[in-house]
Structure formats: structure tokens, C-alpha cells
């Protein structure tokens, strides 16, 4: 159980790393939203699941409530993360930022 939690946390940290590097490397803010909003959500899901598993190991009522709260955070983040991403994107669209297109491929449309 504790090994499974450790594996989940490590893979979650891996997703977090991918998100951060993606934010640094992607060319414009529209494409930066892809790693920022989603890889972080996935990393949060994995680390939180791992920590909930670790918490629920000692099988008492308080521990079960705590891990249920951690699951509640996951549900909350999964509902709010698309909305936050969309809000930032919408601000960009209304301010009139034009998306970056790959050089040489941009004139296709």
C-alpha cells in the first residue's frame, strides 16, 4: 500500500515537472495553457491519490475522513481547472492576442 502510494506520488511529481518545463518552453501563451492547466491537474490527481492512500492506511475514522477530504480536493480541482483555463484563454481572445502558428505553416488557413 505504501509502495503504491510512493509510486503514485513519484509519477505525479513527474507530471508536475512536465507541466513546469512545458510552461517554460512553449512559444506563446495559448500553447502554454495546454501544459499548465492539464499536466498540473493530472499531477495533482496522482499525488493526491497517493497521499490519500497513504493516509487511509491506519484504518481509523479520522484517517478515513481526512482521505475523503483529499478526494474532495481532487473533485474540486477537476471541476474548477477547465473553468480557470477557459477564463484565462477567454481573456486572451477578448484582448485580441493572436495565436502563434508554426513558421511556414501559418498561412494555410
Amino acid at each position: 500500500m505504501s509502495l503504491l502510494a510512493a509510486i503514485l506520488i513519484i509519477s505525479g511529481l513527474f507530471f508536475f515537472t512536465g507541466g513546469s518545463i512545458g510552461i517554460l518552453r512553449f512559444p506563446d501563451f495559448y500553447s502554454r495553457l495546454h501544459p499548465a492547466g492539464k499536466l498540473d491537474t493530472m499531477g495533482l490527481l496522482m499525488t493526491m491519490t497517493g497521499m490519500a492512500l497513504y493516509t487511509v492506511q491506519e484504518f481509523t475514522l479520522a484517517a478515513i475522513f481526512t482521505s475523503l477530504k483529499i478526494l474532495l480536493i481532487i473533485v474540486f480541482v477537476f471541476i474548477t481547472s477547465p473553468t480557470a483555463t477557459h477564463a484565462i484563454l477567454d481573456a486572451g481572445v477578448r484582448a485580441g492576442l493572436s495565436p502563434w502558428t508554426a513558421p511556414g505553416k501559418g498561412e494555410r488557413e
Binding site: 501563451f29 491537474t41 499525488t47
Partner: peptide, 30 residues
């Protein structure tokens, strides 16, 4: 400005995980 907001949002979601980790370190998760 929107790039800054993406950065702040990413830091915030990592902080959520970090807080629970700190709780596990100090054994005060609840």
C-alpha cells in the same frame, strides 16, 4: 500579463499538493 497568470496558477496548484505533503511530514494531515 496572461503569461504571468498562467505561472501563478501553476504555482498555486503545486502549492495545494505541497501543503498536503507538509501535513504528512509534520503528521498533522487533518
Amino acid at each position: 500579463v496572461l503569461d504571468r497568470m498562467i505561472g501563478v496558477n501553476a504555482i498555486g496548484s503545486k502549492t495545494t499538493a505541497l501543503l498536503v505533503l507538509i501535513g504528512l511530514i509534520y503528521q498533522r494531515v487533518e
